[in-house]
Write a protein that binds this DNA or RNA. Structure first.
Lengths: 193, 193
DNA sequence: GTCTATATAGAGATAGAC
DNA sequence: GTCTATCTCTATATAGAC
């Protein structure tokens, strides 16, 4: 067991690989990052990666699972609430305020590698797919603009992280995402919940 | 001169290549699309592409130039206006309402290939870089949250197009982007212009 | 302008020693 | 668990005929 020192102290090799892959995928894209790049980052050769993962796509799949699970949990929570005015805003703020550095990084990853993700992890692990359930709880199918508004509310953190400058910190992004949620769920506009 | 029929009637070979590349890059990503893929789409072999473009990256560069030019024009327009209340909203709506199918497709392209774009077209042709000038006109450097708010206002069309479902049409996306601009530039929040 | 054929490089992945 | 060595495939790009 190769215990590491530095920022990754206490991490298993597998975790170190995932962390390095996440960072490289975000910067250079999925196809722009080779197995050798990832291996070099954690001080291994590319062959060693195949002991921990069956292939490159399974590294991507492992990375995209976490946030999808969080989204599903949020959807279950919302479903368990009884319908009431302001529930949309409440649910969205729950998502925004619970944002962590990891989720921010996961968000950026998802944006950087969207086509590769669609190719390698067909649908169930994708973020747009994850929002589907939530959106369905708060709007009907017949008003596309309102439907898109709801999608924007839940995607507020993603929009803010995409529009942010590289040196904006997490708190700034959360604050801007809150602004966005509040602005888009003014009592007047919030017709369906 | 190989005049074509069908949807690309009247287009030069060069234009047909660009159109095919844009579509494929958006769907499969930059690295996920080979020169052979593009060539096949327009009924050529990959070698023929090198008569029209010096290399794959120059196809990408040509694709990303158009929208950057539009953004620069908008920035010049805003700069020529005298400062007045509501100018931010006015400028952003100008951008949103002028959206065309082409710009929507360009937006989707930019989102699909962000890392490849950063790699191949260093900075000046990138969209985030294009917003920089505009953002500077409407906010100071010392309030990061307000700065990000302004960025979101100008990125409203991009956010809406990203959050949209694949079958949402242009009008739906424009309408949602307008909602976003209006919500984020309420007279109360619009402190700097 | 477009073709066929090919040079060259790099990718993901596997075999087998240690 | 990790290494070295290598297989195989596919990519971009070029050379030269037509």
């Amino acid at each position: 067991m190769p215990k590491r020192s530095g920022p990754n102290a206490g991490a298993t090799t597998r975790e170190a690989v995932l962390e390095a892959a996440r960072r490289l995928f975000t910067q250079r894209g999925y196809d722009g990052t080779s197995m050798r790049d990832i291996a070099g980052e954690v001080g291994l050769t590319n062959a060693a990666l195949y002991y921990h993962f069956p292939g490159k796509d399974s590294i991507l799949a492992a990375l995209s699972r976490t946030r999808r699970d969080e989204l599903d949990a949020l959807a279950r929570w919302a479903q368990a609430q009884e319908s009431r005015p302001g529930l949309l805003r409440e649910t969205a703020l729950r998502w925004v305020d619970g944002a962590t550095r990891e989720r921010l990084e996961g968000m950026r990853l998802a944006q950087a590698i969207l086509p590769a993700l669609a190719r390698a992890v067909p649908d169930e692990a994708s973020v747009p797919g994850g929002f589907e359930t939530l959106v369905g709880l708060f709007t009907d199918a017949d008003d596309p603009v309102d439907r898109l508004r709801i999608r924007l509310v839940f995607d507020a953190f993603g929009c803010a992280s995409q529009a942010a400058e590289p040196d904006d910190d997490l708190d700034t992004i959360i604050a801007a995402a809150r602004l966005l949620v509040l602005a888009l769920t003014e009592p007047g506009a919030d017709r369906t919940s």
